[in-house]
Simulated scan of single mutants.
Amino acid sequence: MNIELIPVLEIPITAKARLQAIQRPLASFQQNPFEWDEYQRQLLVVGGFSDYQCVIQGCNFVCVDQWSLPDLRLLVQNHLDSDGTAPIPLAESCALFGGCILIVDGVPVLVPQCCSTIADFSSWEDLLEPQFTAGPFCLEGHPGPEAVKNGVHLLITCEDPDEAFDQPAQSRVVVPIEDLANATERARQLMQAFADRIDLLSAELGVAKASDYIVWGNQ
């Protein structure tokens, strides 16, 4: 089984007055991927970012290894000043919005949910701890998936009676723990490289290590 775990950042909704002129496509991005892909491209360009390729066509997530330092600087500025009032101090901010996309044999089976942040990466590592048996994970967002360890496999469920999961999200998927561990290690390398780039902005953000707050979610 080919397992990928891809850390991603969510394309931000910025310059809201200008974005009103960009018409949202009809149907979902899965039903209308080409028009949604163009819509996401326009959101990036109008927001002042480079034109990046989304991990899933039409979806609003870009892998962390694609973002340039100037675009990360702009992304952080928008993140801290999202409501147009006084910027939130970095040390009081949540991590950047995003998370991890789980792909099984080339098929995306789980994406970051509403309000999820990149700091949710640690949840995937928690699943691999020897003491983990069962429980919810990716608690930064909602609704949250749950996992149960069954021998050498992990059963992940995406079911919530009160709130629908953002798609794609398979209701149940079984993955070999060893394969997930390998994918998580590759994702850790991407996360660390991403954190190192964010830390290049630390001085101008007035902190010793910016990634502590907006990548790893330490407060």
Rank of each mutant, 00 (worst) to 15 (best):
D179N: 05
E178C: 10
G106C: 07
I11F: 08
D71H: 12
C100M: 10
A86W: 00
Q113D: 09
W67L: 15
T85S: 07
C59F: 15
A27Y: 11
S68W: 12
E4R: 11
L102D: 12
I103H: 05
P143D: 11
A187P: 01
L155E: 15
F49D: 07
L139M: 10
S171N: 02
L201H: 04
I198H: 02
L5W: 08
R18K: 15
V175P: 00
G217S: 07
P87C: 13
Q53H: 09
D160T: 06
V215K: 05
A183L: 03
D65E: 15
S82P: 00
A208D: 15
D162L: 15
I177H: 00
A183P: 01
E10T: 13
L154H: 03
L201A: 09
C114S: 13
L74S: 06
R24T: 10
P108S: 08
L19I: 03
L155S: 01
E159C: 08
H153A: 02
D37Q: 13
C100A: 10
H153R: 08
P70S: 07
L69F: 11
A193I: 01
A17M: 06
L139N: 02
V76E: 00
T14N: 01
R197I: 10
N218H: 12
A164Y: 06
E185Y: 07
I101G: 13
G135K: 02
C114I: 13
N32V: 03
G48P: 07
W67M: 13
L69P: 03
Q77A: 15
I118M: 01
A17D: 03
P130I: 02
A193E: 14
F34T: 05
V45C: 08
N2K: 09
P161V: 02
D81S: 15
L26M: 05
I22T: 07
V107C: 09
N218M: 14
C100V: 11
L9M: 12
E129C: 05
I103E: 06
Q167A: 14
I6F: 12
G206Y: 10
V46H: 01
S50M: 11
R172A: 05
E10R: 13
W36I: 03
E146P: 00
G47P: 03
V215F: 08
G144M: 11
P176D: 11
I214F: 10
D105M: 06
G206Q: 08
Q23H: 10
L155D: 12
E204Y: 06
P7L: 07
S28R: 05
V173F: 01
L96A: 09
V46K: 11
N78I: 06
A86T: 14
F121Q: 00
I103F: 11
P176V: 10
G151C: 06
H142L: 12
V215N: 04
N60R: 11
Q192S: 11
V152L: 07
I118F: 12
G135R: 06
N60M: 08
C94D: 09
D162H: 09
D81L: 13
D51R: 14
S123N: 05
A164R: 04
P12Y: 04
L69V: 14
P33S: 02
S82T: 04
R186H: 14
P176I: 02
L180D: 04
R188Q: 14
P12Q: 10
L155K: 15
C138G: 14
D179M: 07
I156R: 04
